[in-house]
Design a protein around this nucleic acid. Structure first.
Length: 807
DNA sequence: TCCCAACGGGG
DNA sequence: GTGTACGTTGGGA
């Protein structure tokens, strides 16, 4: 019979002489199914006499690794077509020792370290939650929690629709008297579960093992930790989720639960095949797709975010607009022991974390899925990958159809060599410090990707014999084939074109639910933007430093060429960084700038394009500290709407007080609006208020992170001094905590005058400190551009006549 | 200055 | 599991 299904996850088992792939899936009807299919492991080799293969018998564990059969195939390796032996082995783990043995005999072996499940998916063309069909029969199997289908053949099916899934998020709270997490020692106190079924019905349960007064309908109390874990297992088995979300659950929640269960001899065996949670570097449950959102965000999606920390609080705030429930988690242990009336708050905290995790999972699910589909790997693996692996997986998926063999991973020695190789990056024009009028910013859209595709940059076409005349600018030894499109650049071109099509489709479908297309577009964009970095990444299989070098060399050439053209067309260049040109209009009009842009575009090859990025009536470029030179990557622009775009000014550093950020921003605003005198007056007003003690303490708070235990600090900064005082007063202090403090008046060095915020009386702060360490550094470079020195602005003996403000 | 270990997230 | 992240930071040598 034939079934149609959506694969969720995969694993394989070796039974006697069979290698069986398990596909955990959902049937079109919504029922669960586990498909079993035999699949053979293999790798490729050349420079070996096939007669030798039959003799191989290497003992591994309790088995003997053998070659079962082999065939001759033609494949392309870095542009060279060649014959290889495709060598099949009797089980997956036999591949590494056998290939090593062949290498000892002088053979070259390839694709000998491809994870078996990934190999299977790619070869069959399956994709995560993409409809597939199988021929075979259902089989009686009491070992499994779900029906088993013995498949003879599996292949992808055409039509695929969005599948509703039964999802669950988990979060635990534990007994933690110190900052150190000791899973063996301290019990789990609460487990919050928040889920949603296929019909959109929500599910909430919080399990705990202490009785206390509360009004929360979702709390279920058991007798002790052992009962808690038993009940947890029951709830999961009953609810039967397809996807389990967690936040750092690979390294915290699931290992914690597993370790505690082991202590009582309990088995958290909720896998479809009744297997337990497998804790390795990640936590895997057979059949239940465990997605640790922290992994996806840290590895992949975070590249697209502003937050500097990937704590649940920050991430939820940026993506969902909600923060965590406020509660001091470091006191949960004492509340548990002594103040049970406080436990209700901790239950709310726990449940809220689980709910945030569920919402994050729902918000990011399509993105995760699109990355998995583009790379052709299981969702479980995809979200835990770094970008280089993602790019590589995409290339390897495409390699199958192109009959391309993956080059080997670099050896340790080769990695060391590659790490030593450096090259020149983008061109940055050193700006002349000053305030400029009428700036037009043009930038190359996706500069590096478009250069790679336009010039066929890839390892296969490097120094090809047929087209030696077109050298990379400034790189006489580098040239790329112009005759035929090569593998790597053609993949990138495909990504870019697909995304362009998607964008077009999105435009015509405005107002509809386009979340899938948008997620796909994001995945394509992020992958395309990573190709250049991948080619220069030391760990890459398709590493090609010449390619990375050539890409930036072309980029420098194009940008300099554009700047030259701009100058000869009557514009003045005021700044440029990698892919952008800042041009002063002078006597010219905006229209003329557009004409110039179009003229440049006419000469650009392939997908390269210069875009209009914006027009700015004013722009400020400051000098680099302690030099005559202009600072690179540091400027402020005034938009036509009156807004200010700030780049590179350190307004967001947290060890700057609010007042210095505020003053810097305001000064930039005023200066850009040509109200320099107002800016001066404003600064002087703030100085006066500071001196008069009128600035609210809240704006003077400086925040610094504690990075280790307090006794381990050799140099005691103000934040450490304050943290020590706090500790003496009984505040819990642990690494990672942000210490907030204010510098107050008095004698002695700064750290002796650093105080906890709540202890600072109004007007007690040290105005001089804030003027010299916060205000001056924030604005001096700005005023310097306009010809005012620090003394001019701040000193009482100033000749500008403004000193009177400081009396 | 170099090298190695720890960290991130989680309680 | 056809396996061992990764880039940064800070202490100690």
């Amino acid at each position: 019979m034939k079934i149609r299904f959506y694969p969720l996850d995969f694993k394989y088992k070796v039974k006697d002489d069979d290698v069986i792939m398990y596909v955990f899936a959902k049937l079109e009807s919504g029922e669960k199914v586990c498909l079993k299919l035999n699949y053979e492991p293999y790798f490729y080799a050349c420079n070996i006499d096939p007669k030798l293969l039959a003799k191989i018998a290497l003992p591994i564990e309790d088995k003997v690794a053998r070659v079962t059969h082999w065939e001759e195939v033609e494949k392309e390796l870095v542009g060279q077509k060649q014959k290889f032996l495709k060598i099949y082995t009797n089980f997956p783990k036999a591949v590494p020792p056998i290939s090593k043995e062949l290498e000892n005999w002088g053979a070259d072996c390839y694709e000998k370290d491809i994870l078996f499940v990934q190999r299977f998916m790619r070869d069959l063309g399956l994709s995560a939650l993409g409809l597939a069909e199988a021929q075979g029969e259902f089989q009686k199997d009491t070992e499994m929690r779900v029906p088993v289908f013995i498949a003879k053949k599996i292949k992808p099916a055409d039509l695929s629709s969005e599948q509703k899934l039964r999802i669950l998020a988990v979060d635990i709270e534990t007994y933690a008297p110190t900052h150190y997490i000791e899973m063996e020692k301290n019990p789990v106190l609460m487990i919050a579960l928040s889920g949603e079924d296929e019909q959109g019905k929500s599910f909430r349960t919080l399990l705990t093992w202490k009785r206390f007064k509360h009004d929360l309908e979702y709390i279920e109390v058991v007798d002790d930790e052992e009962e808690l874990l038993k009940r947890f297992r029951e709830v999961i088995v009953d609810y039967n989720p397809e996807v389990l979300f967690g936040y750092n659950s690979d390294n915290f929640d699931l290992p914690y639960l597993q370790i505690r269960a082991k202590k009582y001899g309990l088995h958290l065996d909720f896998g479809w095949d009744r297997s337990e949670i497998e804790i390795r570097r990640e936590a895997k449950i057979s059949g239940i797709l465990h997605l640790d959102l922290y992994q996806f965000i840290r590895n992949i999606f975070g590249k697209n975010m502003k937050t500097e920390s990937f704590s649940l609080d920050n991430v939820a705030f940026e993506l969902l607009g909600h923060r965590k429930h406020k509660a001091d988690i470091s006191k949960l242990y004492s509340a548990w022991d002594e103040e049970q009336e406080k436990l209700e708050e901790y239950c709310k905290y726990n449940m809220h974390d689980a709910e945030l995790t569920l919402k994050l999972g729902q918000k990011l699910f399509l993105e995760m899925l699109e990355f998995a589909r583009t790379t052709g790997l299981p969702l479980f693996d995809t979200i835990r990958m770094s970008f280089s692996k993602l790019v590589e997986s995409f290339i390897m998926k495409k390699a199958i159809a192109a009959q391309v063999l993956a080059p080997n991973k670099p050896t340790e020695y080769e990695i060391e060599r590659r790490r030593g190789e450096t090259y020149e990056g983008g061109f940055v024009y050193e700006p002349k410090p000053g305030l400029y009028n009428d700036i037009v910013v043009l930038d190359f859209r996706s500069l590096y990707p478009s250069i790679i595709t336009a010039h066929n940059i890839g390892p296969e076409g490097l120094r090809c014999e047929c087209c030696t005349e077109k050298k990379v600018p400034g790189m006489e030894a580098y040239w790329f084939c112009t005759r035929e499109k090569k593998f790597i650049p053609s993949l990138l071109e495909e990504l870019i074109n697909k995304r362009a099509q998607l964008k077009k489709a999105l435009k015509t479908k405005k107002g509809q639910d386009n979340r899938i297309l948008e997620a796909r577009s994001l995945a394509l964009k992020m992958l395309a933007n990573s190709f250049y970095g991948y080619l220069g990444f030391f760990g890459a299989r398709w590493y090609c430093l010449e390619c990375a070098r050539s890409t930036t060399a072309y980029a420098r050439n194009y940008i300099k060429d554009t700047l030259r053209k701009a100058e000869s067309s009557g514009f003045t260049v005021c700044y440029s960084d990698t892919d952008s040109c800042f041009l002063l209009l002078g006597e010219k009009s905006l229209d003329e700038a557009m004409v110039f842009m179009k003229a440049v575009n006419k000469d650009l090859p392939g997908q390269m394009e210069l875009d209009f990025q914006g027009y700015y009536p004013k722009g400020l470029f400051v000098g680099a500290k302690g030099t005559e030179k202009g600072a690179k990557k540091k400027y402020a622009l005034l938009t036509s709407e009156g807004g200010v775009k700030i780049t590179g000014f350190e307004t967001v550093r947290r060890n700057w007080s609010k007042i210095s950020k505020e003053v810097q921003e305001q000064v930039l605003h005023l200066v850009l609006e040509e109200k320099t005198l107002d800016a001066l007056t404003y600064v002087q007003k703030v100085v006066k208020e500071l001196k008069a003690g009128k600035i609210p303490i809240e704006k003077l708070v400086v925040k610094t992170k504690i990075t280790r235990d307090l006794e381990r600090y050799t140099s005691v900064g103000p934040h450490v001094a304050v943290a020590r005082k706090m500790q003496e007063k009984g505040y819990p202090i642990y690494p990672g905590m942000l210490i907030e403090y204010v510098i107050v008046k008095g004698s002695g060095i700064v750290r002796e005058r650093a105080k906890m915020v709540e202890e600072v009386k109004e007007g007690e702060y040290d105005a001089e400190y804030y003027i010299h360490h916060q205000l001056i550094p924030a604005v001096s470079s700005i005023f310097a551009v306009l010809g005012y020195s620090e003394e001019n602005i701040f000193s009482e003996s100033s000749q500008t006549g403004l000193g009177k403000f400081f009396g």
